[in-house]
Amino acid sequence: MNQPMNQPMNQPMTPGTSPAAGDTSGLWRQVLRRLRRQRMSMAAAALLATILAACLLLPLFSPYDYYTPHFDLLSRAPMLAGGHLLGTDPLGRDLLVRVMWGCRISLAVGCAASLVSVLIGVSWGATAGYAGGLADALMMRTVDILYSVPFVPFVIVLTVLFGRELWLIFLAIGAVSWLDIARIVRGETLSLKQREFVDAARVSGVRGAAMIARHIVPNLVGIVIVYATLAIPTVILFEAFLSFLGLGVQSPLASLGSLVADGTSEMQSHPHLLIVPAVFLAAIIYCFNYLGDGLRDALDPRDG
């Protein structure tokens, strides 16, 4: 960064300085180091990266697309010959390309909706928790009321009003799942508020928004990242559930959820139509869960 800091940064290169003593370069490097020690999490991260790369790249290089029917190749089983590695669906579309598109959509919905819910949830929860008193009561009762709105009718009303749009799914799921994180964050903020470093900062003259941004939110990063990682699979399942009900993505576009839904109707005659997307859905969800678990352990700056 600036001048006086460069010196100690160079030190680990000289022999005799222990690498641990020089390793002050940041919280995130330490988190990574601890995460790397957790095999399941690393395996999950690697698998997730592979799936992500595959679903981004494969559709670009495949000779097939996800929407053009081929009526001479209906519901073929997976085979090495003929180019359809994972077979075709009842309209003769390449299943591999469709599943990759499904992964794209499911991951996009999962990440975008989780991001929305984290942004709303953290600001809402931290403000309510830090403000306390009447503001807290009002904000959290609002959350309670929104909690009691049934999800499926809410989505149906949205689709009736705005039509079946992909962004609507982001919005609907995000609008519901921020409630959980707001509650968690508020609870955590209440306990952080009691910690002495908040008093110490108050004595230093830090107030209101600056206190929340500088002292409360950084301490929430751990649980928020963990929660977000664990929320992504929930959101993906939510989307799968909506697609299963026919409220999700619009055909011919597919999500993993809608592919599974289509697959169930053919599961006796063509089981691969169910099994292939289901395996990808399960793999993605497991990966996020393991990654979230590992992050939870790695993000606590207090140990090792």
Binding site: R195, F197, D199, A200, V203, S204, H215, P301
Partner: peptide
């Protein structure tokens, strides 16, 4: 007027 708190373990923000 400033203050030194009782427990240095909790009086420093662990993330800063």
């Amino acid at each position: 007027i400033s203050m030194v708190f009782q427990d240095p373990m909790t009086a420093l923000n662990p993330y800063l």
